[in-house]
């Protein structure tokens, strides 16, 4: 709790941070809702996209592929509501790290696949080249959003904030 009326850099950060937090939270929520939403209509294709990475048996890939879109949607909703923000951000970060590792390993192994990040996964048309670097950079950007929320999970307009009520003493750990 800092009450600094003067616009010192630290004070500016204090007023800015909650709003950056809301932006990060809603941004990450949008990422998951879109990622899940584009996959949820064709779960078999989602399984094939996972299988295309060739890191697990086909049967397991279909299970992961079917479960993943719903988990992504649920994560998106949790972040949208701002419920258990730190945990949601942590799980987001873990998932993103797994995705980045998957893309990097596909790249290293010379596989020609689409990452399947936002639907349209697995197959690439003939002559189409994979765009691994932009995909990894994009996921790193999302990872930064998750990182921000891991460090500063408390944001305005969140269920977490509402549950905490007026007990705002050191509201940084949630």
């Amino acid at each position: 709790m800092t009450v600094t009326p003067s616009p010192s850099p630290a004070g500016r950060w204090q007023t800015l941070r909650p709003w950056l937090g809301v932006a990060a939270r809603l941004g990450l929520a949008a990422v998951w809702l879109i990622a899940g939403g584009t996959k949820v209509g064709d779960l078999a294709a989602s399984g094939r996209a996972v299988n295309a990475y060739q890191v697990m048996p086909y049967e397991l890939a279909t299970v992961i592929g079917a479960a993943l879109p719903f988990v992504e949607l649920a994560l998106g909703l949790l972040l949208l509501a701002g419920l258990a923000t730190r945990v949601s951000a942590g799980i987001s970060a873990v998932l993103l790290v797994v995705f980045i590792a998957g893309i990097a390993s596909a790249w290293a192994r010379g596989l020609a696949i689409d990452c399947g990040c936002f639907g349209s996964g697995g197959q690439l048309a003939a002559g189409e080249t994979p765009s691994y670097l932009p995909e990894i950079l994009r996921d790193l950007g999302f990872l930064a959003l998750a990182g921000f929320l891991l460090i500063w999970p408390r944001t305005p307009f969140s269920v977490d904030g509402w549950l905490a009520g007026d007990d705002t003493v050191e509201d940084t750990d949630e």
Binding site: V40, L43, A44, G47, T62, V63, G65, A66, A67, L68, P69, F70, V71, L73, A74, L75, L77, L78, L83, A84, R86, V87, S88, I91, D160, L163, A164, D167, D173, E174
Partner: peptide
Amino acid sequence: KRRKRTLWTTIAAVLVLVIAGGIGWAVY
């Protein structure tokens, strides 16, 4: 109070995610 709240919201969030994954598998 905060510790308890954090514990319960964490459990709730993890449950939501596990159930969501289960729904996906069931639908498929």
